[in-house]
């Protein structure tokens, strides 16, 4: 390959106007051992291009089970958290209700005890009344 031709191609190459075939020409030129000294910097460029095309994906492609359980794990964890928060809230509500119930029961008990005291006193009065009646009847 003539040097003048290569230089012309390089200019086209820099302007992104070369075809694949022309780029292959450049590639073979720069991969050869006889590169003009003033074009040395291109040598490493084309070397890099051709060597990096040799890199291979060495692992085998897996199509079935994909190790992505952690994603579901987070979903499950957040669900559990939600449920536990909800049940905890429910429990808390129940406890509150029970406390209130106990309090009202106590209050009602106190009320009834005091009421009973009142009725006892009235019973005593009743007794007094009947005995008084007996006595006053005798004197009539």
């Amino acid at each position: 390959m003539e040097l003048a031709n290569i230089e012309k191609l390089l200019e086209k190459y820099e302007n992104a106007e070369t075809t694949i075939a022309e780029e292959n020409e450049l590639r073979t030129y720069f991969l050869s051992d006889h590169v003009a000294p003033h074009l040395k910097e291109y040598q490493s460029v084309f070397h890099y291009f051709s060597t990096s095309k040799n890199e291979r994906f060495t692992k085998s492609i897996q199509l079935k089970s994909q190790p992505r359980n952690w994603r579901w794990l987070t979903v499950a964890a957040s669900l559990i958290l939600l449920v536990s928060v909800y049940t905890g809230y429910q429990k808390n509500q129940q406890n509150k209700a029970e406390k209130i119930y106990a309090n009202t029961q106590m209050a009602l008990n106190m009320l009834s005890v005091n009421l009973n005291k009142g009725t006892n006193a009235i019973e005593e009065l009743q007794e007094f009344e009947t005995t008084k009646n007996k006595i006053f009847k005798q004197f009539k």
């Binding site: 190459y13 820099e14 302007n15 106007e17 291109y42 490493s44 460029v45």
Partner: peptide, 15 residues
């Protein structure tokens, strides 16, 4: 083409 030309020129200039 514009991007490619720019990239190729940058690489050469840097080299």
């Amino acid at each position: 083409r514009v991007s490619l030309s720019r990239a190729r020129k940058t690489i050469r200039e840097q080299l």
